[in-house]
Nucleic acid binder design. Structure first.
Lengths: 246, 246
DNA sequence: TCGCTAGAGGGAACTGAGTTCCATGGTGCG
DNA sequence: CGCACCATGGAACTCAGTTCCCTCTAGCGA
């Protein structure tokens, strides 16, 4: 948590730029790619980077961390994004979907790096496990935001956690399909589509009425025709198309 | 440590019963509880259990594994449960909800053990991370089953992963609320309620028509009255109550 | 009874991640 | 010039996990 108040530049404090850190990441990935993650020791990395072993652990708390060098910053960005709109009046589900897109953007900024890392984590169990804990922190950030917005209703916490899990699952589904294509396709399209499914399932309307909707007020009438035994999701699809929602 | 792991009939060939394994689990938890997980070394455990250090790793591939001694079996049970009904004709969402209940049952079989483990994992980051990878394996088992049942429709894989994530999130929500109550309340009730929410959101009808529903057949008509700008989940609630579904 | 084998358990020794402690060397400041 | 302050370097340590090899015992055939 404590990043240390060693920043002197009045510019962006979070974008502190230690060249040593980047050198370590570069050296680590070079070795990981040419001989594998588990076959590479910390000593190998620091030797190639030309720095002391102690310095590695000064910048990365563990060997796994060097594989995900920018997630800490991205998580902070996500929290900031959610905080700055915590009192907004729009759909919280849409909000967390947009927050998830921040992660996608980070991946899309460095396609080749992201694809290399994807292949690495796919092969190494230890990295898969570490990635899970990273993803979990994003999910918790989303769930906490949603809890604050949904706590009023019944099952607020439950709904917050389920929606957060669904958003993360959908985002990762789109992200992985893009990573599998070696970063060739359109990352945004895949994730937008996946998040659209979640938003259609859980989301609130685009235009948000003050005070939220009340069951006893009927400004409009929607008629849905359906088989009584149709799956609920199919009914929801019909409603969506009737309402003209995405 | 009267709180030994589950009893199984010796007739079950798969569940052969190594007494040494149980002794290691008992010794480990005794030390974990009295001095903490990280303050306990493997040597401490094997010394207390009166066995050789090498034997620990014969039964548990890592120190974390001794904290979750029965998940491997439970995961196998879940896969078997899903496999044996892979060709069933009922709602796949209901099916994975029932599969998730297998995990709850395992926790409920040893309440004190489960609560102790919950407190332990809550405190130790390494155990939290390990638990994530365990949970992930359940989620993948559910998602693969769903993929096989939903792959026909559009976005089959996406829907499978989102539903699996939602089921896991809901299950864990109910499970945790029970664990926080020191295993005093009704575990089944909390999880049933949480899974009910998921089933209401994603589930298909109870009675399954041969060949599945077709959009062009209208055996029945349902009229839903709602604000046009009501949240979709609220509309779904109305539909459910109209249809008399749980 | 002997000898052989196989498999469970025991244990020394090794690798490597992560930590602790301290030395060093440069930089700003009085 | 000397002092304080850091960032870095590096030795030495702990402990998880692995490798290699040993012992002991059960079983079995001759």
């Amino acid at each position: 948590m404590n990043d240390g108040p060693r920043r002197r530049e009045p510019s962006d404090a979070r974008t502190a730029k230690p060249p040593m850190r980047d050198a370590l990441v570069a050296a680590a990935f070079q070795l990981f790619l040419e001989r594998g993650y588990e076959q590479t020791t910390i000593d190998d990395i620091v030797t190639l980077a030309g720095v002391g072993r102690r310095s590695f652990f000064r910048y990365f708390p563990s060997k796994e961390d060097v594989v995900f060098p920018d997630h800490e910053r991205c998580l902070a960005d996500m929290r900031a994004f959610l905080d700055e709109t915590a009192d907004a009046d729009d759909d919280p589900v849409l909000r967390v979907c947009d927050a998830a897109r921040l992660v996608l953007r980070m991946y899309a900024e460095n396609p080749t790096f992201s694809v290399q890392r994807y292949r690495l984590t796919k092969e190494v169990p230890g990295l898969r496990s570490y990635e899970l804990s990273v993803v979990r922190r994003y999910e918790r950030a989303l769930a906490e935001y949603l809890r604050g917005r949904l706590a009023a209703g019944r099952d607020g916490t439950l709904r917050a956690e389920v929606v957060a899990a669904a958003v993360v699952a959908a985002h990762n589904n789109g992200l992985r399909s893009w990573l599998r294509s070696d970063g060739q396709g359109d990352a945004t399209a895949a994730v937008d589509h996946a998040l659209g499914y979640v938003r259609a399932t859980f989301g609130a309307p685009q235009e948000s009425p003050r005070g939220g909707p009340r069951a006893e007020e009927y400004d409009d009438v929607v008629v849905v025709v359906s088989r009584r035994d149709a799956p609920l999701w199919r009914v929801v699809q019909e409603i969506e198309s009737t309402l003209g929602r995405d």
